[in-house]
Amino acid sequence: MTAISLTAAQTRFLRGQAHGLKAMLQVGGKGVTPAVVAEIGQALEDHELIKVKVAADDREARAGLIDAIVDGTGAALVQRIGHTAVLYRPSREKRQIILPRP
C-alpha cells in the first residue's frame, strides 16, 4: 500500500485532533506480524486517527517497526513521540475527519 502524503497544515490539524487520544494498540516483542498489521488496519478503518505504542528499547528498532506499520497499512505517520506513533488513514466506508484543504 502506498502511504498518504499530508501537507504541514493537515499534519498540524491531525496532531491537534490526536492530542487527547489514548494509545489504542501496542506492538510487542514479536514485532510487526501480518496479524498486527491487519488489526491496525481495522482500527484505522474504524477510527481514521489512532495512536500505536511500540515496545522497542532501541530508537532505530522503534523507527523500523513504525515504518513497517506505515508501509503495511498505507497510513500516514502524523507524529512520533518516544514509543508512540500517531497514524492517519481515511476510512473507505465512513469518513469522520475532514482535513483542511492543502
Rank of each mutant, 00 (worst) to 15 (best):
H19I: 05
Q10T: 02
A9R: 15
I98E: 13
E93V: 14
H47W: 07
D46I: 00
L6W: 10
V86C: 10
I4S: 00
R12M: 00
R59I: 12
I69P: 03
A35M: 02
R92Y: 08
G74L: 01
T2Q: 15
I4C: 06
H19F: 13
A68W: 01
T73M: 05
V54T: 10
G29S: 09
L6R: 04
V36M: 15
R92I: 08
G74V: 01
D46C: 06
P102N: 11
G64Y: 00
V70T: 07
K94Y: 05
V27A: 08
T11K: 14
R101K: 12
K30P: 00
D71E: 15
M24W: 08
E93M: 08
G29V: 03
A9H: 09
L21M: 09
A35L: 10
P100T: 07
V36W: 03
G31Q: 02
R101V: 13
P100V: 01
A61S: 12
A3L: 07
L49R: 04
A35W: 03
Q79A: 15
Y88D: 10
Q79T: 00
L49E: 06
A61T: 13
A35I: 06
R62M: 08
Q17G: 02
G41T: 13
A18T: 03
L14E: 02
R95S: 11
K22I: 11
M1C: 02
F13H: 13
E39H: 08
A8M: 05
A76V: 11
M1P: 07
I97P: 05
L77A: 12
M24V: 01
P100W: 07
P102K: 11
G16R: 13
T84F: 06
V36R: 02
T7S: 15
E45R: 11
R89T: 10
A35P: 01
V52M: 08
A56S: 00
R80W: 09
E93I: 12
D67R: 14
P100D: 02
Q26D: 03
Q42F: 05
D71R: 14
I81H: 07
S5V: 13
V27K: 01
I66E: 05
K94F: 11
S91P: 09
I69M: 12
L25W: 07
I98D: 06
F13T: 00
G20A: 08
R80G: 01
L14G: 04
A18L: 03
